[in-house]
Design a protein around this nucleic acid. Structure first.
Length: 744
DNA sequence: TTCTGCGCAATTTAGACAGCATGTC
DNA sequence: CTAAATTGCGCAGAA
C-alpha cells in the first residue's frame, strides 16, 4: 500500500511524499485497513520504530488534510521530549497545509498564546488534565484524540491521570476517534475494548531484532545460535559492547545507577588508554572536537563537563538525568553522529527520545525500589530497552544482550525475559493519592453534584472495565476532601469550595494544599522565615527532594520534628514516621535552596550537596511551582505573606536574593548578571533607562547586543507599566485565568 | 610512627509531570 | 523493612 493510494486529500498526500513517506509499513497498512482513515478508533500495539508516529499523523491528516473548518486534534504523550519531537514533524507537515499546531506542556515559556485557535494541540498527559481542570473550551470540540504510549495507564503515578483524562474526553466528545499507540502488551485486546477500538497488533520492526544472553563470554541467542565474545577489558558488559563495535556498530549499555554509568564509561576509557586495539575501535579522531569544545567552553559545571569532555574525546559517553539538558544534548548528538561508539546510560534514554544502536547491552535485570530493595524489572521494561537495538539503514540486525553473572541468572534471563511475555496493563486508579486528586478535579468542574454523578465520570475508565466503577472509593474520598476543606459535602451532594477549585487548577495534590494552608496558619506574618516557607513547599507529596547523607539523618529528623510542631503538626500523632523522614529530607533540600537564593555559586552548591546539575534544576523547577501555588493559596485566603511569597517564587526560580527580583525578570538576565548590574548601581529596571545596548552588553560579560536590546526594551516596558499601574489606583483587575489565553 | 591488607560494617541505589502574562497609597 | 554492590572503617601486623 502506497501513500498515493490513501483516502486523503491530494494536497496532504503531496506533502507526505515531499517528506519522504511513500510506502506504508505493515502496521500502518493494517491500521488503514482497520479504518484509521474512516474515523474508526484504533489501538496499535507494536514495537518502537515500527512507524506508529505516521499512524498518528495520518489520523490528524484525515480531518486537517485540507483547508476548511475541520475540527480539533489532540495528541498526548508522557514526556515533554516526546511531545516536542512529534510536534517538530507535525509542524513541518501541517503548517504547509495551512494548519496551526500548538504545543503545550508545563514549560511556560513555550505556550503559544493562540492555543485556543490551534487545529492540533500537542500536550503531555498532565497538561491535558490541567486544561480540562481549567475548562478549556477547545476540549469539547475534539474529533481526533491520539494517545501515545498508552501503556502508561499501568503506571502507578501517572496512569490514573491518563485514564481519567481519556474517560472524560470520551464522555465530552461523542463519536470522537481515539487512536491509541502502545508498546507490545499482553492485554491489548482489553485496552481496545475499553476504548471501543479495533486492535492492530504487529511485531514487525524496520530492523530485525535478535536477543541473547551473555554468560561466560558466550552469547546464547534465542534462536539457539552461540557467539564467542573476545576478552578485551575483562569486564563482561564492556566486552559485550566492544564486540558490537568491532563489527562496525555502536553499543548502548543500560545500567541501573548513575554511578555505574560513569564508572563503566571511565573503565572503558582506561582500557582504551592501555590497550591499542580498544583505542582504535573507539577512536573518534577529530570528529569529537566540536562536542568536546562545547563542554569545555562552559564556565559552569566544570567538574562534570571536564569528565564528560575527556570521555567524549575517546569515543565513550555516559548519560543520566543528573546531566544538565545541554549536556544530555551534546551526548545524544555525539552518539547520533557516531562519534561515540559506546554510550552507558540509565533508563532515561530508553523512555525518551529515539536513540537506537546496533547492540543494546543490559547490564542487569535488577533495579532498586525504595522500600522493596533490589527487585527484577518487568519484562515490558526489558523489552523497552531491547527495542532500542538496531539503527534503520545502518544495521543489518539489532541485537539485545543481557549480561548474566551465573548460570541461574542466564536461565532466568532467557526464559523469563528474552522469551517472556510483557505483563498486562492493570489500572492503578484506586489509590488514595490518585483518587483524591482526580475526584477533586471532577467535583470542581461539575459544580454542584451528587456523589453518584461524580462517580459516574469514572465509569469510562479502565478501572471500571477491569474491576468495576469505583463508587465506594469515590464516596469515601469526598469525605476526605471535605475534611481538608476543599469540598463541602451535605448528604449526597458535593460542591468544591473556592480553595478546592484553586487547588485543582494549581494541579497540586490536595494533601499538598491542605498542608500548606495549615502550615501558613502558624506563619501569619508578612514575611515569615524563608526556610520555613521553603520547608512547607518541600514537605509535600509533589515535591522533588535531594537525599541527605546518612550521617545527618538523626540531627535532621530531630530538627524536622521540632519544625513540624512549630508549624502545628503533631509528630507521631497525626504525622507518621515516614512523613517525618520526608520532613528531614525536606529540611535538607530547603537548606540547599536557601544557598541557592542566597546566590551561592552553582558549582559550590553542587559540590556541597553532592548532586549533579540536573538534580538542582529538578528541585528548582518543582519548588518554583509549589511556592507559586502556596502564594496563590495565601492570596485567596487573605494571608499576609501572599506578596512576599510572590517574590519568593521568583527568588527560587532564578536563585537570587529579594533585591534582584525585578532585574531577573528581564530577558537574558539571570542570577549572575542581575547581581553584576546591582553592584554597578542599577538596582531596578528603571535604572537601566539611560543605557544603550552597547553599554549594557559591555557591562555584562557574554551578553550580545541584540539580547541587550531586548532586555532594555523589556526594562522600559516594566518601568512604564509600573507607572500606569499606580495611576490606575484602586481599580482592581480581575483575577486572570489560563482561559484568557486559551480562548476557552 | 606510618603504612598495608583484610574482613566486616555502613552506605547507596532511575526518572520527571504540573502553575503562570502582577500588586500601589 | 526489602537486597546487591561498593565504599568506608577498624584492626592487626609489617616496615
Amino acid at each position: 500500500m502506497r501513500v498515493e493510494e490513501l483516502a486523503l486529500p491530494v494536497e496532504a498526500k503531496r506533502v507526505l511524499l515531499e517528506h519522504g513517506y511513500s510506502e506504508l509499513f505493515p502496521p500502518q497498512r493494517e491500521a488503514v485497513r482497520a479504518g484509521l482513515l474512516e474515523g474508526r478508533s484504533i489501538v496499535v500495539a507494536s514495537p518502537t520504530g515500527s512507524g506508529k508516529s505516521l499512524i498518528a499523523l495520518l489520523a490528524a491528516l484525515r480531518v486537517l488534510g485540507e483547508p476548511g473548518e475541520g475540527c480539533r486534534v489532540v495528541y498526548a504523550a508522557p514526556l515533554r521530549s516526546l511531545v516536542y519531537e512529534r510536534a517538530g514533524e507535525w509542524r513541518s507537515i501541517l503548517e504547509k497545509l495551512g494548519r496551526r499546531v500548538a504545543v503545550s506542556t508545563g514549560d511556560y515559556d513555550r505556550v503559544e498564546p493562540w492555543l485556543g485557535e490551534a487545529d492540533a494541540v500537542m500536550v503531555t498527559y498532565e497538561k491535558l488534565d490541567s486544561l480540562l481542570r481549567h475548562g478549556a473550551g477547545l476540549l469539547a470540540e475534539v474529533c481526533v484524540f491520539i494517545v501515545d504510549e498508552i501503556h502508561y495507564v499501568g503506571d502507578a503515578r501517572r496512569g490514573p491521570v491518563l485514564e481519567t483524562v481519556i474517560a472524560r474526553l470520551m464522555a465530552m466528545n461523542d463519536g470522537m476517534q481515539v487512536v491509541a499507540l502502545s508498546a507490545t502488551i499482553s492485554n491489548a485486546g482489553e485496552i481496545a475494548a475499553w476504548l471501543g477500538a479495533r486492535l492492530v497488533e504487529s511485531s514487525w520492526r524496520p530492523v530485525r531484532l535478535r536477543e541473547g544472553v551473555f554468560n561466560n563470554y558466550v552469547v546464547e541467542w534465542s534462536d539457539g545460535e552461540e557467539t564467542r565474545v573476545e576478552k578485551r577489558t575483562r569486564n563482561p558488559t564492556l566486552d559485550a559492547a566492544l564486540d558490537a563495535v568491532a563489527g562496525g556498530g555502536q553499543a548502548l549499555i543500560f545500567v541501573n545507577s548513575r554511578r555505574k554509568a560513569v564508572e563503566l564509561a571511565e573503565k572503558l576509557a582506561a582500557a582504551a588508554a592501555s590497550n591499542g586495539e580498544v583505542r582504535r575501535l573507539l577512536d573518534p579522531g577529530g570528529a569529537a572536537e566540536p562536542y568536546v569544545e562545547e563542554l569545555r567552553g562552559r564556565h559552569e559545571h566544570r567538574e562534570l563537563n571536564e569528565k564528560l569532555a575527556r570521555l567524549l574525546g575517546m569515543g565513550v559517553g555516559f548519560h543520566h538525568a543528573g546531566l544538565a539538558s545541554y549536556q544530555r544534548d551534546v551526548v545524544e548528538k555525539a552518539f547520533r553522529a557516531r562519534v561515540l561508539r559506546v554510550l552507558v546510560a540509565t533508563p532515561t534514554l530508553a523512555a525518551g527520545v529515539n536513540l537506537p544502536a546496533r547492540r543494546v547491552v543490559v547490564d542487569t535485570l535488577y533495579r532498586f525500589r525504595s522500600g522493596r530493595g533490589s527487585e527484577p524489572i518487568k519484562v515490558s521494561e526489558y523489552k523497552q530497552l531491547a527495542g532500542r537495538a538496531g539503527r534503520p539503514g545502518l544495521d543489518p540486525v539489532g541485537e539485545a544482550v543481557i549480561i548474566a553473572r551465573t548460570w541461574e541468572q542466564a536461565w532466568e534471563a532467557l526464559v523469563g525475559y528474552v522469551k517472556g511475555e510483557p505483563e498486562p496493563i492493570v489500572s492503578k486508579l484506586v489509590s488514595e493519592a490518585a483518587l483524591r486528586s482526580q475526584v477533586l478535579a471532577v467535583v470542581s468542574s461539575l459544580g454542584v453534584a451528587t456523589v453518584s454523578e461524580v462517580a459516574s465520570v469514572f465509569e469510562r475508565t479502565l478501572y471500571a472495565v477491569q474491576v468495576g466503577p469505583p463508587f465506594e472509593e469515590v464516596d469515601r474520598i469526598t469525605w476526605v476532601l471535605d475534611e481538608y476543606g476543599f469540598v463541602s459535602r451535605v448528604g449526597d451532594v458535593v460542591e468544591a469550595t473556592e480553595t478546592g477549585r484553586r487547588v485543582a487548577e494549581l494541579y497540586i495534590d490536595p494533601l499538598t494544599g491542605y498542608r500548606m494552608l495549615r502550615g501558613l496558619e502558624a506563619l501569619r506574618a508578612e514575611r515569615p522565615p524563608i526556610e520555613r516557607l521553603l520547608f512547607l513547599s518541600l514537605w509535600s507529596p509533589d515535591a522533588t527532594r535531594i537525599r541527605p547523607p546518612r550521617g545527618l539523618h538523626l540531627a535532621l529528623e530531630m530538627e524536622a520534628e521540632q519544625l513540624l510542631e512549630d508549624l502545628g503538626f503533631k509528630p507521631y500523632e497525626e504525622v507518621g514516621e515516614a512523613d517525618i523522614a520526608v520532613a528531614a529530607e525536606a529540611l535538607y533540600t530547603a537548606d540547599m535552596l536557601l544557598d541557592w537564593v542566597m546566590e551561592k555559586p552553582e558549582d559550590a552548591i553542587l559540590a556541597k550537596y553532592g548532586i549533579d546539575p540536573g538534580d538542582l534544576r529538578a528541585v528548582v523547577e518543582t519548588t518554583n511551582w509549589l511556592v507559586y501555588s502556596m502564594a496563590q493559596l495565601a492570596r485567596i485566603t487573605g494571608h499576609p505573606a501572599a506578596t512576599y511569597l510572590d517574590k519568593l517564587t521568583v527568588m527560587v526560580k532564578h536563585g537570587v536574593q529579594e533585591e534582584l527580583v525585578e532585574l531577573v525578570k528581564l530577558p537574558g538576565i539571570g542570577r549572575v548578571r542581575a547581581r553584576r548590574l546591582y553592584e554597578a548601581g542599577y538596582r531596578n529596571p528603571g535604572d537601566l533607562a539611560g543605557l544603550s545596548p552597547e553599554q549594557l552588553a559591555s557591562l555584562l560579560r557574554g551578553l550580545g547586543e541584540e539580547r541587550a536590546r531586548q532586555a532594555l526594551v523589556e526594562a522600559q516596558r516594566t518601568a512604564t507599566k509600573r507607572e500606569t499601574a499606580s495611576q490606575a489606583g484602586a481599580q482592581r483587575k480581575r483575577q486572570r485565568s489560563i482561559l484568557d489565553y486559551l480562548g476557552g
